[in-house]
Design a protein around this nucleic acid. Sequence first.
DNA 1: ACAAAATCAGAACGTACGTTCTGATTGTTA
DNA 2: TAACAATCAGAACGTACGTTCTGATTTTGT
Lengths: 198, 198
Amino acid sequence: MTRARTFDPSTTLSQVVDLFASKGYSETSMEDIVQTTGVSRYGLYGTFGNKRELFEQALERYAEGMGKQSFLRLLEPGASLDHIRKIFDDRVADICCSEANRGCLFIHTAMELAPQDEELRGVLQRFMKRISKAFAIGLDSAKGRGEIHKDVDVDKAGELLTSSMFGLVVLGRTGFPRETLEGIVDSTLNSLKSAPVD
Amino acid sequence: MTRARTFDPSTTLSQVVDLFASKGYSETSMEDIVQTTGVSRYGLYGTFGNKRELFEQALERYAEGMGKQSFLRLLEPGASLDHIRKIFDDRVADICCSEANRGCLFIHTAMELAPQDEELRGVLQRFMKRISKAFAIGLDSAKGRGEIHKDVDVDKAGELLTSSMFGLVVLGRTGFPRETLEGIVDSTLNSLKSAPVD
DNA sequence: ACAAAATCAGAACGTACGTTCTGATTGTTA
DNA sequence: TAACAATCAGAACGTACGTTCTGATTTTGT
C-alpha cells in the first residue's frame, strides 16, 4: 500500500534505553537519539510520541529487560542465593567495566523525574516493588535450601537488597573500583546467613 | 571606597545548595538561582564564577555541612552505634517528609556529572571515601563498646553503610513511605551485631 | 557634596533544545 | 507502469538556557 518503515521499533527502543540509561533524561537530546539510532525525527515521533512518552516506553522496556534477564529466575522453584548473587555480579559488571558508562534508568528516573512526575513515580514504584518481591521470593527459596538464616524476614530483606543495588550503582558511577563493590555485595549477602537481632 | 555587596555569599551558597540538592544540575537554571536567592546575575557570576563553578562550590559546601552536622561526631571518642543510627534517621527524615523534596547532591553529581567530569568525579570520590572512613571509625568505636560484633571488618562495613545511605535516598525519591526506609535502616544496622560469615 | 567604582536589574546575544513542517523519495497496490 | 501515501532528511520555529553587556543606582572616601 505504501512505503514501510525502514527501522525496527523494538531494536530502536533498545538503543534508546541504552542512551537514557547512561545519560539520563535531560542530558539525552532527541538529536542524540536520531544520531545513535539512525531513525528520523519523523519516525521517532510517529512511532513513540514525544520525548517524554519515548522515555516512558524506554523505562518500561528497561524494566522488562531486567526482569527477563535477571529476576525471572528468582520466581522459579529452586532459586538459590547464588541466583541473587549473580544479579548483583551482573549489575556490578554492567556498571564498572562498560565502555558505554551504562548507568541505571531507575535511578535516573528517581532523581530527575519522579518528584515532579506523578505518573512516572507510580511506574517506578511498581517496578521497585516488583524487584523487592522477586528478591523476597528468591530469598524464601534460598531459606528453604538452608542458604540464609531461617529467621530472616524475606520481605524486609528484599527491600534491603533493592536499596543496596541502587547504592552500588551510585558508587560505581563515581568510579569506585570493582573490588570495592564486590566487597559490599559480599557483606550484604553474607549478612543474610546470620541470625537477625532484635 | 565603593558600593558593597547586598548579599551574603555564604547564605546565598546555602540556598544554592538546596536548589541543586533537590533538582540536580541541569534542572536548576541560573534564573531559578536568581529568583530563589534574590541575587543578581552580576553578583552570582562575580562571586562564584559560572554555573559549573558555582555547583562545585555548592558541592563542597554540601559535603562540609554533612560532615559538621552528621559525621564529625563519629570521629570523637565514645561514638556509638546510635550516632550512626541518627545519621540514617536524619537522612530518612530529610528525604521523606520535606516539602522541599530535598534529594542528595552526591547522587545527583554521581548520576549527572561524574562520568563526564573527571574533576567532579575526583571530588566526589574523596567525599565518599571520607564518609566511609568516618563510618568505619564510628563502627570501631561502637565495636569497643560491644555494640557490634567484634569480627566485623569496619572498613568494609563503612563502605556498605555509605552505599546503603545512597540506596535509601533513591527509594525515598521514588516515594516509598518512611516506614519502609526505617525498616531497611534497622536491618542494615542490626546485621552488624551478628557474627559475619565466611 | 562630589566623584569614582562597583553594584544592581534586566536587556541582549548566541546556542541548543523539542517539536513541527516541507519538499523530495520510496515502495506498494491497482 | 502509474499513482498514491507514508516515509525520510533536514530546514524552520519557538522557547529556554548560560552568559555577557548596559545604563542607572548606590555607597564610600575625600
